[in-house]
Amino acid sequence: MDQGEKQIDVSRDQNRYITNRSGPFYITGSEIEVEIPFSGEAEAFKIQPNPYTLSPPRASVRGNPLTFAILGSNLEAAQVGGEIHPNLLDFLLQTIRANLIDGPTLTSIYISSLKDQHNFPSRHMQGLGKAVDISRINGMRMSTHYPNDPAVKLISDAIQLAFESWGGRRENFGPLFKRKHGKPHPVAGHTDHIHLSVD
């Protein structure tokens, strides 16, 4: 894991008092990159599928592992492994892979919230990292690329569909659907990110 300082846009955080939400509102936080090894040839990431996106991933393959970032205002690299519920971490490790779907290649996800930027009773604040928010696919913000970018839509939808069959799932909110324990759940927002939580 690598840790660095990062400016975090919290303009969409409704739990913060911000007078002007028409643009970004930055605070200083931390970004931690978590590496996930993959099997197969790294050259496969350079293959252009058909159909393909006009907004290619803004990421690079550095050796074997895929990387995803955890962003927050109060994170420490040594704590990240212990900040995610084991069942949720297992889902990410088994699901976030290059060949998640036929067609577009998944190179990275961006975890924009783990245990910060939320207040109780949010699942983010209950116990051991029982919720994550994913806001970027292959470096592209879902807020601007979903559903118009085919790769972002297909991969985002696939993550939500995969979580629906995961044991111990609780909340599965995102642009494709919003379900709690497998049933439709009326909750606002979640059109610009995926929220996944476990029991």
Rank of each mutant, 00 (worst) to 15 (best):
H124S: 04
I32P: 02
D90V: 11
P57F: 10
H124Y: 06
G82T: 06
I32R: 03
G82E: 06
F45G: 10
A44T: 14
E35K: 13
A78S: 11
S113F: 06
V61F: 12
S39W: 00
P24N: 03
I96A: 14
P24E: 04
N64A: 11
H118Q: 07
S113T: 09
Q79N: 14
N74Q: 10
F68L: 10
G81K: 02
S112F: 00
G40M: 02
G82N: 05
I111S: 01
S73Q: 13
S73N: 12
F68A: 01
Q94K: 15
L54Y: 08
Y52T: 14
G23H: 13
I70H: 04
G103D: 05
P121A: 08
I96S: 09
T95E: 11
F45H: 07
P65Y: 06
L89A: 10
S113E: 06
V34E: 04
G81A: 07
T28Y: 13
K46V: 02
L66M: 11
L100D: 08
E35M: 10
R97H: 12
N74S: 06
P86N: 12
P86Y: 13
I84G: 01
I27W: 07
K115L: 10
D90T: 14
H124T: 04
I70W: 05
D116E: 11
Q48S: 15
L66H: 12
L88W: 12
E83Y: 15
N119M: 15
P86K: 07
E41L: 07
P57D: 05
D102Y: 03
T67D: 00
H85D: 08
A69H: 00
V34C: 03
P86L: 07
A78W: 12
F91D: 03
Y110K: 06
P49C: 12
Y26S: 03
G72I: 04
A77Y: 01
P24T: 08
I47R: 08
F45T: 03
E76L: 05
P49T: 10
F120D: 11
G29H: 05
Q117E: 14
F91H: 08
S113H: 11
P24H: 03
P65I: 07
I109K: 03
I70G: 04
I111M: 05
S122E: 07
N64I: 04
A42V: 14
A78H: 04
L100K: 11
F68P: 00
N64R: 13
F68D: 02
P51E: 09
T53W: 12
S73L: 09
L92A: 02
L54C: 15
K115S: 15
S73M: 12
S108L: 01
Y52I: 01
L71F: 02
S73A: 11
